[in-house]
Design a protein around this nucleic acid. Structure first.
Lengths: 356, 356
DNA sequence: GCATTTTATGCAAACGTTTCCGTAGAATTT
DNA sequence: AAATTCTACGGAAACGTTTGCATAAAATGC
């Protein structure tokens, strides 16, 4: 039973909104002399509310700029309309494009995106996972950290049945959907290209042996070498996330081993290689040819332009998100053990040009 | 009064956790024969709980892998430990570095980050803002969309007192803290440099006249021209977010107006300019010199290497987040009308080299 | 040895929704 | 005209926490 006439209490409500306090369903209900449940139903356009009531409710809601409390709603519904994206880092063209794809789908579905960086650190990865176990998100999209050697910390997610999709850097031991590129095949193809343009001693720059992508690319690389007998044995150069250290390492290799080709497993290593070549005084592509997995937009503007294997990052993000939403929508069928593979695309540029 | 002996009900709880249901404070309480409030206090290490009880509670919580429900907690505390970052897009080196900085601080403070892209669209911006009004986040970090002409949609945020900090693309009309670079001064300085290396007809590529950064840079550009009499009048080339359209526009300008210098207000326009020069058959820096505000990591590897005004993106992100957390921590003092300015840094490279 | 404080805990009310269930009155059926 | 089904709404319980208040028992003060 409301005490105030409409004018008075409307004014009061307005004042509240103008100060700190935010307007709730309860206020709308009191204002309109309706039950809370009725207002709630009216706002969600329930069929059991008369058109007139709906009209009154929505009008007042609009007037007072009512905004539903997401936390109350999530708590009650046990669904947050939020997903988490867990990636190693953002200053990497690949991941920023993936996020773009993810967001495109999330926005379409009216979902919200929480973002977490592991900084290639397994410990941090475990902490994030641990927190998400509390029902914070409805699902997870994730690419593993470079230092992640065991997937023990992901086990609770599987047990709890929290939907998760891995992309790019996946885990073989976990039974979850994945979205990847044809790393093995494209690496093999790219290596063949290097040999075709005359390379006989190719160094493979590895980013982390823990990573699925690195393993598969390395495998494709080795396969290509085996396929063509008479090639020099493969050179595996272990690199890390420390750019300075990588630089020193690559310079040393260039000087001591004198490879005539470099296969960079990730973009960052290609860039470091460019700097290393400049430092050592080697000319690309004359002395050494370089190619890399990369999503660098300026690849064609580099000096020399860089031959790249471009991963369909944006589409991978969209695809991973789409799979996740399938899981969210049809909770019944648990047969989501699909592994989506999207082909990468090699673009040959001057860094692997046959010397003239 | 619990019905089960410890062993039995422990087993039961374990089973729950293994299936869907997640373990709550209530279960811990029943299990340990304690009140809910006691468990809650024990978990938050309240001084009024005995060490033995705390020990028992934390032990069981750990054993059952208890994780607090963030939504319940946020609802009750009216604080979400979450901030929102609203940016135009992510496929832009500047913004990805800013996010990195923001995340660094957020992680330190144990806050969570929701990310939203406006895609340079004011409408989308308004929708995001509208949603955040519902108490979803404790604070907002934001950079305005290129099409945002009015800031009406931000008014409710100010009225509600929701802490917000603008960075880079700020609003003058709103009374909120900002973090920017010295756009005017660095643009003026860069323009002087262009004139120093011989440019007499410089085209300024504008990204959007709605944007504070664009205005200030343009202003600095014009000021430099005025400071040095005898220069050709300034050429303002309005560009947009449509890369193809920009490309056509720049090609046309290069052909018809034949400028000998280009000042790109943002990175994207510099890259398009490189392509345009190649298309028109002009040589950089011989025919036309180019410089740009840019955070491109590969600027030094371009052909020719690009003279850039580097914004301290990472530090800007950290700084903006730091200011926001100040606001969050000391809700009383409302004197946060500070405007932080961090200096940009110009690195001269070959794209503005004096022709030989 | 009684009065008072302290210590450690329990009870219950919030936080803002959603939803199950119940029910007047109107509309419909028989 | 009585019995049934709708229609439109209200009451209240839940979601999982946190927190103000109350209170037994223990410790302290005189």
């Amino acid at each position: 039973m409301p005490k105030f006439g409409n004018l008075v209490s409307l004014h009061e409500a307005k004042n509240w909104s103008r100060n700190m306090s935010t307007v709730t369903i309860k206020m709308l209900a009191r204002e309109l002399n309706l039950a809370i449940s009725t207002v709630s139903r009216a706002l969600m356009d329930s069929y059991e509310i008369s058109p007139e009531t709906k009209q009154k409710v929505t009008a007042l809601a609009k007037q007072l700029n009512y905004q539903p409390n997401h936390y109350a709603s999530s708590l009650r519904k046990q669904r947050s309309k939020t997903i988490a994206v867990i990636i190693p880092e953002i200053s990497n063209n690949f991941f920023s494009h993936v996020i773009n794809g993810i967001e495109a789908i999330a926005q379409e579905k009216n979902y919200h995106v929480l973002i977490y960086f592991t900084h290639e650190n397994q410990q941090k990865e475990a902490e994030v996972i641990q927190h998400l176990l509390g029902g914070r998100v409805d699902g997870i999209l994730m690419s593993l950290a470079g230092t992640t050697s065991s997937t023990m910390h992901l086990q609770p997610i599987m047990e709890q049945g929290l939907p998760i999709v891995f992309f790019d850097r996946i885990s073989d031991t976990l039974n979850a959907p994945t979205v990847t590129t044809d790393d093995f095949e494209s690496a093999r193809h790219a290596t063949r290209h290097l040999m075709d343009v005359g390379c006989r001693k190719i160094a493979y720059l590895s980013i982390s042996p823990n990573l699925s992508i690195d393993c598969k690319r390395m495998h494709g690389f080795n396969q290509a070498l085996q396929d063509k007998p008479g090639m020099a044995h493969s050179m595996m150069i272990p690199c890390s996330t420390d750019t300075n250290q990588n630089f020193e390492r690559i310079c040393q290799v260039l000087r001591e081993e004198q490879p005539d080709g470099i296969f960079a497993s990730v973009e960052k290593l290609a860039i470091t290689s460019y700097h290393a070549c400049a430092a050592v005084g080697l000319s690309i592509p004359k002395d050494v040819k370089i190619l890399s997995f990369s999503n660098l937009e300026t690849a064609s503007l580099l000096n020399p332009s860089l031959t790249t294997i471009i991963q369909p990052a944006f589409d991978m993000g969209k695809s991973a998100a789409t799979v996740l939403f399938h899981m969210l929508e049809k909770r019944k069928g648990r047969q989501w053990e699909q592994n989506t593979v999207i082909k990468s695309n090699m673009i040959i540029r001057n860094s692997t040009q046959i010397a003239v």
